[in-house]
Write a protein that binds this DNA or RNA. Structure first.
Lengths: 214, 214
DNA sequence: CGTACTTTTGAATCGCATCAAATCTGGTGG
DNA sequence: CCACCAGATTTGATGCGATTCAAAAGTACG
């Protein structure tokens, strides 16, 4: 871990009580670092300010499956309830990360009801986001998954590529070859645009208001 | 809704404060009923004691995608933070369901910190479950998804079929034909057994203890 | 006994994974 | 500055497995 001073993120300041923040440390982590590994006893949760971190689990044949790619937000927050981490967290791009100690987090939650309420809000949002991701992964064409991502996670159809399309492919649960071809096709059709750092959805497909009838 | 008296579920009694429970009503809902629809203003969350409920969203072409299949637990709990429901909840099998009014739920949470803490525990478990579901949906063979389900959600490899395999297929994000064939193949190979109400995984594949090295 | 639904099997098609290889890119060191 | 390397990007060819469409048989329920 790089010990270079970095400012704690504003979003975190608003969420965590001051007492807990004094136990937090923020620093820059380099590509390749592992925040925690499957089976470790959870001591911290992590807040990604900027950068990129993936949660992954070793698959049956040794290949790894990306559970989640986070460029901003909490990682390891479910460890609040767990005796062990159930996945690995790996830093993919240089990241600004704040460590929050679990023990002090629990104490703060017990003594500060307003904080507990704020945390419930955070978790509820996370549940909604995960449900959307499940919906996305239920689509079986690459194109559908990509468009779903741009529509649900993008800002006006604009979605930031992080480390690159390859990393995005992992998040979408497809091979990078398939994603490259899909992006290229959509570009040729004029449904999509790319710039240095973003993918932008151009044509809004006429949304069907609602399934006509069961 | 059937107004026949049914007992509030014990699990719910332990989670919700007594004051809130007085606002809850438990009743039997029949197949085909809709607990809520996309766009409705959330007034209740629902606890499924027994039965089966699916959350689904209308897909682009009018087809519906199953976000989640619940046979026991909360549905619509993320609505605590939402102005609108973001999916439909449909009753698939006769179900014992407790309605919890959102307004009173919020009030109870604000006035009862211990309840808020319990709710955080519930949400954290949900987050973990959803991450596992994402992992499952990232597998691209039906067989891998099924085995993953049996290994992560089953009790000693035993997993209760609810309404039938067709409903399970929706949860796994595959067609029912593919699932039928997969189950049949695994049965022939002796890796799987079926009885009236369960699927049982027979051979535990030699679990790799841990990925050898990054 | 008819209706609605699930379960089952079959056949054809399509899209993605897979394997392979070439190009491009940014960064490092000589 | 250039050679070089690791990784990302891109294109191509092939095969497998799931979807899709179709149809028949089983099952529950009124």
């Amino acid at each position: 871990m790089n010990s270079k001073f970095t400012q704690i993120h504003k979003e975190l300041t608003e969420l965590l009580p001051a007492g807990l923040r004094t136990f937090c440390t923020t620093s820059v982590h380099e590509r390749g670092e592992r925040l925690f590994a499957t089976g470790d006893k959870p001591a911290h949760m992590f807040f990604i300010g900027t950068g990129e971190v993936v949660l992954e689990r070793a698959g049956a044949q040794g290949g790894s499956v990306v559970l989640q790619r986070t460029r901003h937000g909490f990682v390891g927050e479910a460890s609040l309830q767990s005796a062990r981490y159930h996945c690995d967290a790996k830093v993919i791009a240089p990241s600004d990360i704040t460590q929050v100690p679990i023990r002090e987090f629990r104490a703060a939650m017990d003594s500060d009801p307003a904080f507990a309420i704020r945390w419930i809000g955070m978790l509820s949002k996370e549940v909604k986001r995960l449900r959307l991701q499940c919906e996305r992964l239920s689509l079986n064409k690459v194109q559908d998954r990509l468009i779903h991502l741009l529509e649900t996670e993008g800002q006006q159809g604009k979605f930031p590529i992080g480390t690159g399309l390859k990393s995005l492919a992992g998040e979408l649960g497809v091979t990078h070859e398939a994603l490259y071809r899909c992006v290229s096709d959509l570009e040729k059709k004029g449904a999509l645009k790319r710039d240095e750092k973003n993918i932008i959805l151009l044509s809004e497909p006429p949304e069907v208001p609602h399934a006509p009838k069961q």
